[in-house]
Design a protein around this nucleic acid. Structure first.
Length: 935
DNA sequence: TGATTCACG
DNA sequence: GACGTACGTGAATCAG
């Protein structure tokens, strides 16, 4: 029996996507016990549906209900505007497979489940709401999405299911400043950064509402735009008319869709016990199955959630405090044995992976063995490259017994390691991914315990496996030294007897798996899932590719410079012996100090805490004007630095077969979110001195290519202006003014037209000081002025920019209360020493002020790097290096303009859509045959 | 191995 | 009232 929808009927429309995302983000990443299927969002979704059904009693209960979903990603809005929702983040890996299950769940509850290709859920809801209202019924939309507010009125209400708050005409007015029928007008003007609706630049919801209320509606406003008094606003509305009209079409919901069902199909039905309980038990939701069974008066079925398997070896997962047993680890000798471990990985849906190699240089070393573990306490080692006869002085290429042929093992493992549905877990996965890539395997998707720890606990402790194992598993891993020895007599892993290697190597996989089980759920609890998912995990492959590409370095340039430096240094050395009256080690600060402050009896010497004379550059610089000796020591040191660290050392890092240098980025290197580069460090190649800068000429583009350098201009000061909300600074950046000159002008009451380089220099030092957590002492030392004067500068600065002081005080207070600070993207930097006493307190406080600024800048460029591969896909261009606020590319000369354009767009827009910056990010670009020219 | 110095953002 | 400081890194070298 069906009822014709009409007067007295009450339709509920549930925004399915909103339910799913709410469920996903509210819950830890649960997996189905029997097979590891990610199931957290489905679980939350079902709980929400169940609570909804339970709450539907009394006179206000719905007579009709449907859950509406989005389908596909291309809608008619994309045809109108190709950038619509263009900067949406990709769906998390572990959510995608849950989407079809939420549809199944809806049907299991016996609730109508509707979606349509080419339309958003909002359009379906709009159409249904109109139909229901026209038929004389009532409608309640269960969502808090502001895009749906245009539907409110005349029997249509919204209900925010989380806050249980009704939104009627008054609620809409509160949000938009206009009634529901004018909401689209306001949205068309204000735009929407989340959906990438452009709107009118510079006009937000408040201004939009003001204008609409004054002129009645959008069309009248646009027709009469010339009457607007504010020149900028008037100009925007006239010039951007097309864009605004397009925006309106984008936000306007389609309430006249042709549907393949009618309202009558949405009638509320009781759930069928068998279907619902069947679904819930299949998902292995124990509590919910029991609850629903009780309610429906059926017996709850037994849930068998032990992992499906053949034998006892696959017992249910033990808690992490299962003891470690090295004897339980298996030596895999053939394909058959390996297959059982691969099967286990498929049953679980995840597997911890670790590689053993002949060294640490992942571009050069050979693969020796692979470890796998999908269950705590159980792990295997697949030896592949162990040599026989470790005692043979001449070495031997004879392989040890009991190993699979490497080709065969890799062929069997490749489908698993590349399977999109199987999560590969590692500690520092970039290392293993690079090794595998060299053997033709692209490992994906991945999780990394090092990066999970970093997202959770940056600043609290290190993220190496040994430290994590001791801290979270209470277990000290076998030190690698016990196998390899140390110093000169150290051997490589391929010389380790396999029976010993099994115990060590398999343990690493076991530990990694247990750490993952322990730490991964904490991401949600600590609210850093987004940090991990958007700033850490996707970066691994980007860095891997950059590192493997490397940058071409011209050995001859370096070698010539080394020779020139050596000659000059020999001259300085002789001169220094002459001046001192005897020979000494110029490279020894202690000996230099002794000559200056004892033999020459100069004033101003300080001793270090070890009692040695201290001779840093700034001290020598003060003496240099009067004493040639100090000047020559400085000269010598500069060349020594350039030669030993750069022109000599870099040559050793050039790969003979490619002529390129491959650095390694440490993603968890700096507590702030910055990365560190090592082996070699390519983030500190000289640039400040003329002589040093020439080293960059050795970094060259290949034949027919150029190097591009794109760097953020003043990104940290822009972020400070944004975070502290300093209008004067923000405006200066918007207007493209010289920020240091402007600061100087404000502080010293000097008009911009009378600005001198000296005054500007002082203001620049203060601006930098502010980012570092300014102190009078530090500023005084930097500017070579008395402390009192530096203090006066700071006082005056804070008078002109009181918001900066407020920001600093608030940041410190936050840190003291929470023991961490945060970037604008939610990255946490822990500050365990913030409440320390004594000098350490000062350090911690300054670090607390600096970390959110430096960290936010680091987050921004990470976001840009993650989007970059897609942005330059298809172009003959490669991203090579990152230097904190700069990216280096190598591109075909002909494509340079296009790459600059795309890369700049990505970098300047990197904060959106997660963050709407009111200060523009600006990127400068340069190009040339080498890095010196490009910079 | 720790301390010192200095290269970068 | 003195303390001893700019923030974040990596690498080479000396000295014990």
């Amino acid at each position: 029996m069906t009822t014709q929808f009409g007067k007295g009927c009450h339709l509920h429309l549930i925004d399915g996507s909103a339910f799913i995302f709410r469920a996903y983000h509210a819950l830890p990443p649960l997996t189905r016990k029997s097979d590891g299927l990610p199931i957290g969002a489905v679980s939350g979704f079902c709980n929400m549906l169940q609570r909804y059904v339970e709450g539907n009693t009394g006179p206000d209960a719905p007579t009709h209900v449907a859950v509406i979903f989005d389908k596909g990603s291309h809608t008619f809005r994309n045809d109108l505007y190709d950038q619509y929702k263009a900067n949406r983040e990709a769906m998390p890996e572990d959510l995608r497979p849950q989407m079809p299950l939420t549809r199944e769940a809806t049907r299991a509850f016996n609730i109508a489940c509707k979606e349509m290709e080419g339309f958003e859920a909002d359009d379906i809801m709009a159409t249904l709401a109109h139909q229901a209202r026209d038929a004389g019924g009532r409608v309640t939309i269960l969502s808090s999405d502001k895009d749906l507010m245009q539907l409110v009125g005349d029997g249509v209400e919204m209900l925010d299911p989380m806050k249980n708050k009704r939104i009627d005409r008054d609620g809409v007015f509160e949000k938009f400043g206009v009634g529901p029928e004018r909401v689209v007008d306001v949205q068309a003007l204000a735009g929407d950064s989340v959906d990438n609706v452009p709107g009118a630049p510079g006009i937000g919801i408040k201004t939009a509402a003001l204008l609409i209320n004054e002129y009645g509606d959008l069309e009248s406003l646009l027709d009469r735009a010339g009457e607007i008094k504010q020149p900028k606003r008037r100009q925007t509305l006239i010039e951007k008319r097309d864009q605004i009209e397009l925006s309106k079409k984008l936000v306007q919901l389609d309430c006249n869709m042709t549907l393949d069902f009618t309202l009558d199909d949405l009638e509320v039905k009781d759930p069928v016990a068998e279907d619902l309980v069947g679904f819930l038990s299949q998902m292995e939701f124990r509590t919910l199955t029991k609850r629903v069974s009780d309610q429906l008066g059926v017996e709850a079925p037994a849930i068998n959630d032990t992992p499906q398997s053949g034998g006892a070896a696959e017992a249910a997962e033990e808690p992490a405090d299962l003891p470690f047993d090295a004897d339980a680890y298996e030596w895999v000798k053939d394909a058959e044995a390996l297959q059982t471990w691969i099967d286990a990985a498929y049953r679980r849906g995840y597997v911890a992976v670790d590689t053993e190699t002949t060294g640490l240089d992942e571009m050069r070393v050979d693969l020796v063995g692979i470890c796998l573990s999908s269950n705590a306490g159980q792990a295997c080692y697949v030896p592949l490259g162990h040599k026989a006869g470790a005692d043979d002085l001449f070495g031997t290429d004879q392989l040890a017994e009991g190993q699979m042929p490497m080709d065969q093992a890799l062929a069997v493992l490749k489908p698993l390691l590349e399977d999109e549905s199987i999560l590969k877990i590692g500690q520092n996965m970039k290392y293993d991914a690079k090794i595998f890539a060299r053997y033709g395997i692209e490992v994906a998707p991945i999780d990394d315990t090092m990066l999970i720890s970093y997202a959770l606990h940056a600043g609290m402790h290190g993220h190496g496996m040994d430290a994590l194992s001791e801290r979270y598993l209470n277990h000290t891993p076998i030190p690698i030294k016990t196998l390899l020895g140390s110093g000169k007599s150290a051997i490589t892993f391929d010389r380790v007897p396999i029976e010993d290697a099994v115990k060590y190597a398999a343990e690493d996989a076991d530990i990694t798996l247990r750490l993952w089980q322990k730490l991964k759920p904490q991401l949600h609890q600590q609210q850093v899932t987004t940090v991990y998912e958007t700033l850490e995990r996707p970066l691994v492959h980007v860095l891997k590719d950059m590192e493997m590409t490397g940058i071409q370095v011209d050995r001859d340039v370096l070698s010539r410079m080394s020779n020139a430096f050596a000659q000059k240094m020999a001259g300085y050395e002789a001169e220094l012996y002459e001046l001192a009256g005897h020979e000494f080690n110029v490279q020894s600060p202690a000996q230099v100090g002794k000559i200056l402050f004892e033999e020459m009896e100069l004033e101003g010497g300080k001793k270090t805490k070890t009692g040695q004379w201290s001779t840093p550059a700034d001290v020598l610089e003060d003496l240099a004007a009067e004493h040639t000796f100090a000047r020559r020591v400085l000269d010598y040191r500069q060349l020594q630095k350039l030669k030993s660290t750069y022109t000599d050392a870099l040559q050793d890092h050039i790969y003979p077969d490619t002529g390129r240098v491959h650095t390694s980025y440490l993603q968890s290197g700096a507590n702030t979110g910055r990365m560190a580069s090592n082996d070699p460090n390519l983030q500190n190649i000289p640039v400040r001195s003329e002589e040093g800068r020439r080293i960059r000429e050795a970094f060259v583009a290949g034949e027919g290519k150029v190097l591009l350098s794109l760097d953020y201009s003043q990104i940290e000061l822009r972020i400070l202006a944004e975070m502290a909300g300093i209008d004067a600074l923000k405006q200066a950046f918007k207007d493209g003014h010289d920020i240091h000159a402007m600061t100087a002008s404000e502080m010293f009451d000097v008009p911009m037209s009378e600005m001198t380089p000296e005054i500007r220099r002082q203001a620049k030092a203060i601006n930098f000081g502010v980012i570092y957590g300014i102190s009078a002492f530090g500023l005084a030392r930097n500017l070579h002025i008395p402390r009192g004067e530096a203090q006066d500068f700071i006082t005056r600065y804070f008078e002109r920019f009181p918001g900066i002081r407020t920001y600093m005080e608030e940041t410190k207070a936050f840190a003291k209360e929470h023991l961490y600070v945060q970037t604008l993207f939610g990255r946490k930097i822990h500050m365990p020493e913030i409440n320390a006493k004594g000098p350490r307190a000062g350090f911690a406080q300054r670090a607390a002020i600096n970390a959110p600024i430096q960290g936010t800048a680091a987050d921004v460029i990470r976001r840009a790097m993650i989007r970059m591969p897609a942005a330059i896909a298809g172009l003959p261009a490669k991203m090579l290096l990152q230097v904190h606020d700069e990216l280096i590319f190598e591109v075909d000369e002909a494509a340079a303009d296009q790459v600059v354009e795309r890369a700049r767009e990505v970098m300047e827009g990197a904060a959106a859509p997660a963050l709407h910056m009111s200060v523009p990010l600006v990127v400068d670009a340069g190009r040339g045959a080498n890095w010196a020219e490009a910079h």
